[in-house]
Design a protein around this nucleic acid. Structure first.
Lengths: 336, 336
DNA sequence: TTGTACGCGTTATCAT
DNA sequence: ATGATAACGCGTACAA
């Protein structure tokens, strides 16, 4: 498999009997080119199969036409059976495709890869950067933004929103869920909270605490890491903690699914004995046993919005909001 | 947000009081540099925060250090609740990260984006290309390979394997599943086949036909497109077609899940009345009702293998196999 | 409208 | 061991 020489602008120019500059103009759609010459150049381009060299082009334009999506997780974690990341990628992909940009996917779970991602972005290999699923007070987004690289985060950054972000209304969604439980007569409402180094985990727990306070009820909290297994384990601890509980608000659908399994295992009926509410509204939650009542968050929309924001930043669109918060919505099915 | 001037090789050279060439040598780890000078250069690099410009580097090295994964599907299709693509990406991601290459994800569902992807790859923006989930006799992989671009496909290409590929043993997996059904006394074994423009759909149906022939049984075939909804619909048609059927082999776990729902809906018990076998072994299939007996295919391994193959091609590793076929394995749970 | 010539930031080939 | 210097392929002032 020998690499065939790719034709250059020079080769096309020779073939068409014009200068390189003219070919460049035709290729880039400049209007100030005579129709006859344009036609000749176009033919030469086709005959030679000329395609512009992106590296050379970037070198002078300072643009790469590609945008990175950085996931501070290991590949194994990102693509387990959790559908959050796929949905983000879907939204981002749709929007970038429409803008004719390429999506560079970077997983930065280890500190080694974390550094690699930083160097990559700083090297000017992408025109902009999006972050999803951040842990703790990651300095990377801020660092990149300070270097003048357009950056947008999904999820309000912990430790000071020094970069634009897109998030959903965690608090309001949780409150709606809890109020639904209270209205249904539930009084011993526990929660399985998410990791407290992520804003989704923090805000949903805050929503639980505030709404329970409001109703004057006692709190029961156990923590998971958004996986099904952690949901199973947390539900078991909760049952040990308060065998009389009659409802549980779970901070993610995957963990809620785990809770359902653990409850069935413990002989509890859902929702007769214990009501369960999740958070996400994955497609699959329609098919759990029983179908899951859950707080819907528009994940793909977050991806789309994030992409639009970063494109706006790149193009210098004025008046972009520093923060966009998308609404959540309680979807009532059978589990609560 | 002003783009801060990035320091160039030239700037570092001035600061360290040496030539550009020497700085380049230090940055690229050449041994023939005096220790004292190397130290001075390193310090200048740190102080200035110098990072090599990738475009300039690519221009001369002809390498981009990034590799594309092309999915000939729309973003919406790729990241539905089907876990096939996420698993492929996971495997690819792990392997590329180890090799310090960047993953460029390209979804090419429309013919417009199909062309864009081709131009992108031909423009030399990536060092190699991987394809997953191909439909029909797509000429793109062959075209790119002919241009000297390292290409590997997941799934044997339809219409002549003119490019290296990685696949799984569809036929053997299906045969094992069907024989298990026959051994369990099932005699009216239907199948829900996958799309016949994809090798996974074709080969699994071929396995069904051959193994049923071998056992002298009558065939009942309905088709789906690997989605849960199509599985539901196909199962209903099958029940209409042969109300007496006592088993169904389904060409994917998602469709099998749909079949389970349709059977329950029709009042059939699984496996008492009808045995069900899927194909994939997604994590979630352990939790279906009843837990799904299925043919496991090592999807993430396919991704890893594919990545290793392109990397080998790129590095000119001799003796790479044109085809790698990974084994499948029947996982018996409760549905059959 | 078209062509000339320069510069983008590197790496690589020479001398020294 | 180190330093000039020539590519690499393209866009674009500037000149014609």
């Amino acid at each position: 498999m020998v690499t065939r020489e790719r034709p250059t602008l020079e080769a096309v120019a020779r073939r068409a009997g014009v200068s390189r500059a003219t070919v460049s103009r035709v290729v880039n759609g400049s209007t100030s080119v005579a129709a006859s010459i344009r036609e000749a150049v176009t033919r030469a381009v086709d005959e030679l199969g000329y395609v512009p060299n992106q590296a050379a082009r970037s070198l002078v334009t300072q643009r790469t036409e590609s945008i990175a999506l950085i996931l501070p997780e290991t590949a194994n974690r990102v693509f387990s059976d959790d559908l959050f990341f796929p949905a983000i990628i879907r939204g981002v992909g749709v929007e970038l495709e429409a803008a004719d940009k390429q999506l560079v996917l970077m997983m930065a779970g280890s500190s080694k890869s974390h550094g690699r991602v930083e160097r990559y972005a700083v090297a000017g290999h992408v025109d902009g950067v999006m972050f999803a699923s951040m842990h703790g007070a990651d300095p990377l987004p801020g660092n990149l933004a300070r270097l003048g690289i357009p950056v947008v985060c999904s999820g309000r950054p912990i430790g000071g929103p020094d970069v634009p972000y897109v998030d959903v209304d965690h608090f309001g969604g949780v409150a709606a869920g809890i109020r639904h439980l209270v209205a249904g007569g539930r009084r011993r409402i526990a929660t399985i909270a998410g990791p407290q180094d992520m804003v989704a985990g923090i805000d949903r727990l805050a929503g639980y605490r505030a709404t329970l306070d409001e109703a004057g009820l006692t709190q029961h909290v156990q923590f998971g890491d958004f996986t099904r297994e952690s949901g199973i384990a947390a539900m078991r601890r909760l049952l040990l903690d308060d065998p009389q509980l009659d409802a549980v608000f779970v901070a993610s659908d995957m963990m809620a699914h785990g809770a359902l399994l653990a409850l069935k295992d413990a002989g509890r009926r859902v929702p007769a004995d214990v009501a369960v509410i999740g958070f996400d509204d994955f497609e699959i939650s329609r098919y759990s046993d029983p179908p899951l009542t859950t707080v819907r968050q528009p994940i793909a929309d977050m991806g789309r919005t994030m992409a639009r924001q970063v494109l706006g930043l790149i193009n210098g669109v004025p008046g972009l909001p520093d923060a966009v918060v998308l609404p959540t919505e309680l979807v009532v099915r059978e589990s609560a």
